[in-house]
């Protein structure tokens, strides 16, 4: 198992390397550079700027230098924001994105599980149908539309919540809702199906026959199994949240990493684009590794067949 873990780790590093290389060359291939600007500068000034960022060297040398720096965890200087390093930029804005993402993750998992469980326990009765309808709606509405709708209702009409910005807990409510609606719906649907499946199993009847309460039954016998597909969704969910965060941060003017990422691509801020790409990929790789570990922890049979989902009896 340790071997498998190491294998996964090495595989993760390889993924990071490939993505970095691809991003590095793709960024350079797009027309326009970080200092392509409306206002022209004298060649001497342009040269001094290029020298400052090492852009005057051949591409291969730049690439090797970059890899060398990345290996030392130095993501370089932003070309758009003079005097700011990419590390600084990530260090400042990532905690915000992380908090937003974490809140959304918790809300979507909690809401998804609760809705899914509730629907499954009221299978084909009206609460189930109501939840299914809500879920379907949430899956159809894109998060920017939902965000605008939420702002319109809760901020402009009801005046309960601020429309945007970040800092107070009230300001977190709408973005977290906008961000977690879709994953919550997805989890609810997944969990509902799995719960219905599990609830029909003999061991559930057995557990009931032992005289267990419904609460305990669900907590001890159903959740642990039904949560496995949800667990395997957490990897894709993290990706989903990362991309969702870009949009939500923009709409709600939240000073997170997503805004820098999008702008850096438009501005050809090579070092920022690359730096954030590396950071995101590393994060996703680490997160998936964590999910695998959680999987191992929850499923006693995974020790035998790593990664293979528990087969139903």
């Amino acid at each position: 198992m340790a071997v498998l873990l190491i294998k996964r780790f090495v595989y993760g590093l390889l993924v990071i390397y490939l993505v970095v290389t691809a991003t590095f060359f793709i960024m350079r291939a797009i027309p326009g550079g970080p200092f392509t600007a409306e206002k022209k500068v004298s060649p001497a000034v342009a040269r001094s700027i290029e020298e400052k960022y090492g852009l005057n060297q051949p591409l291969g040398v730049q690439y090797l230098n970059y890899l060398n720096r990345v290996a030392r965890l130095d993501l370089g200087l932003s070309m758009k924001y003079p005097g700011r390093t990419v590390n600084e930029l990530i260090g400042e804005s990532f905690p915000v994105s992380a908090l937003l993402g974490l809140l959304a993750l918790m809300v979507s998992v909690a809401a998804g599980l609760i809705m899914g469980a509730f629907a499954a326990l009221r299978y084909q009765r009206w609460p189930d149908l109501a939840i299914l309808a809500t879920v379907t709606l949430c899956l159809c509405v894109p998060n920017f539309a939902l965000a605008s709708l939420l702002v319109y209702i809760f901020s402009l009409k009801l005046k309960w919540l601020p429309a945007a910005m970040w800092g107070s807990p009230l300001q977190a409510v709408l973005p977290v809702l906008a961000l977690s609606a879709l994953p919550a719906a997805f989890i609810a649907r997944l969990f509902r199906a799995e719960m219905i499946d599990v609830l029909g199993k003999d061991f559930i009847k057995m557990a009931r026959a032992k005289g267990l309460s419904d609460m305990r039954l669900i907590a001890c016998h159903v959740l642990k199994i039904a949560v496995i597909p949800v667990l395997s969704y957490l990897g894709p969910l993290a990706t989903e949240l990362l991309t969702g965060i870009f949009i939500v941060e923009k709409i709600f003017a939240i000073p997170g990493l997503g805004q820098y990422y999008l702008n850096s691509i438009i501005n050809r801020d090579y070092s920022v684009t690359l730096g954030i790409t590396i950071f995101y990929i590393a994060l996703l790789v680490a997160f998936n590794l964590l999910v695998d570990l959680a999987y191992l922890f929850l499923n006693p049979r995974a020790g035998l067949e790593w990664g293979e989902q528990y087969e139903r009896a």
């Binding site: 003999d202 061991f203 557990a207 267990l212 001890c220 642990k224 499923n299 006693p300 049979r301």
Partner: peptide, 18 residues
């Protein structure tokens, strides 16, 4: 099938004494 595959035998037997 009557035993939950995710729980230890002990845990499940213990439950019966709840």
């Amino acid at each position: 099938a009557a035993l939950n595959p995710m729980l230890t035998i002990g845990f499940q037997v213990l439950e019966a004494f709840g």
